[in-house]
């Protein structure tokens, strides 16, 4: 029972990161109809910026803040300089370009920082606090939950309640009509890329200290899990991405806890396959709306 509680909390903590990363994928998918395969590499690049800043200044939090800003800027640049110029006639084109970006970013990071693991600092302790003899949450888990909770609710509020959120949704659903109504659709697209990439950078900052450390490929497996989470929830559904992230986090935690960590990559793929076979639109696929 103790073990079950521990695995559940650990799964939810990892799942929260997957949720944020999946949410970033969904944001770009909804706005641009592109699955951003480069998101892991972009997030790692932001984490390296944080590493440099923290190393130079000795301040973890300054690096943390700079990583988010770097993520936002990198997203905007990738949209303006690269993705905007890709011909979307075939859905494969942006995928290939994104994969090219992955190679480019990882190669550059390898050249600048070297292809070895660097220790990543965690701002809070990672040993679990015990409640009534049961190991439950570490301060770091609490930090992860709180940060992601704030970011996800902030995004939800922005999309649902603010004028800029309304513009972004309108631009994603009906770009042509939105332009006729005075919405700067191109600007909204760039903003979507920036936000998604900022959330991706945040997820990387949160997950890398819990893994082997900072490395150009540090987010590769996280990307696979988050992509599965996004597909489980339905690529069009932000709440689906959050729930999907938590589901994938729990699944991986149970599989690795009860069946061995060798099986976790396999478990992700089995889940992905099962969802694609049974509900290809994802668990949260909206009822098909008639296009008018």
């Amino acid at each position: 029972m103790d073990r079950f509680v521990f695995l559940t909390v650990d799964g939810l903590s990892r799942g929260a990161v997957y949720a944020a990363f999946a949410l970033a994928l969904v944001l770009i998918w909804r706005a641009a109809r592109v699955v951003n395969f480069a998101q892991g590499a972009m997030a790692v690049a932001a984490a390296y910026v944080a590493y440099s800043v923290s190393a130079a200044t000795g301040s973890y939090w300054l690096g943390f803040g700079v990583a988010i800003v770097a993520g936002l800027l990198l997203g905007a640049v990738v949209d303006r300089v690269v993705m905007r110029h890709v011909d979307h006639a075939s859905p494969l084109n942006p995928v290939i370009v994104a994969l090219g970006l992955v190679l480019l970013i990882q190669a550059v990071l390898g050249m600048v920082y070297g292809n070895e693991f660097r220790p990543a600092e965690a701002p809070f302790g990672r040993s679990a606090l015990t409640v009534g003899g049961v190991a439950v949450l570490s301060p770091y888990d609490l930090f992860v939950f709180a940060t992601i909770g704030v970011v996800v609710s902030g995004l939800a509020w922005m999309f649902a309640r603010t004028p800029v959120g309304l513009r972004m949704r309108a631009a994603a659903f009906a770009p042509e009509v939105s332009r006729l109504l005075g919405v700067n659709v191109g600007g909204m697209l760039t903003l979507g890329w920036a936000l998604a990439s900022g959330v991706g950078a945040l997820a990387a900052m949160l997950v890398i200290p819990t893994e082997l450390g900072l490395h150009p490929h540090a987010m590769d497996l996280v990307f696979v899990s988050a992509f599965t989470a996004a597909v489980v929830g339905g690529l069009d559904s932000p709440p689906g991405a959050v729930v999907g992230g938590l589901v994938v986090g729990l699944l991986l935690s149970y599989v690795s806890g009860y069946a061995g960590s060798d099986l976790t990559p396999l478990a992700v793929l089995v889940l992905l396959l099962a969802v694609l076979l049974v509900r290809p639109g994802g668990l949260f696929a909206p009822v098909a709306a008639r296009r008018v």
């Binding site: 004028p163 309304l166 949704r169 309108a170 659903f173 009509v177 939105s178 005075g182």
Partner: peptide, 26 residues
């Protein structure tokens, strides 16, 4: 200039209120 396009361009995924507010956001 306001252009109401063919098929009218109501955004199905938005509410009536959101569609209307969109027309005045600029």
């Amino acid at each position: 200039m306001a252009h109401v396009p063919e098929g009218r361009g109501v955004i199905s995924e938005l509410t009536v209120d959101e569609n209307l507010r969109l027309g005045g956001l600029w």
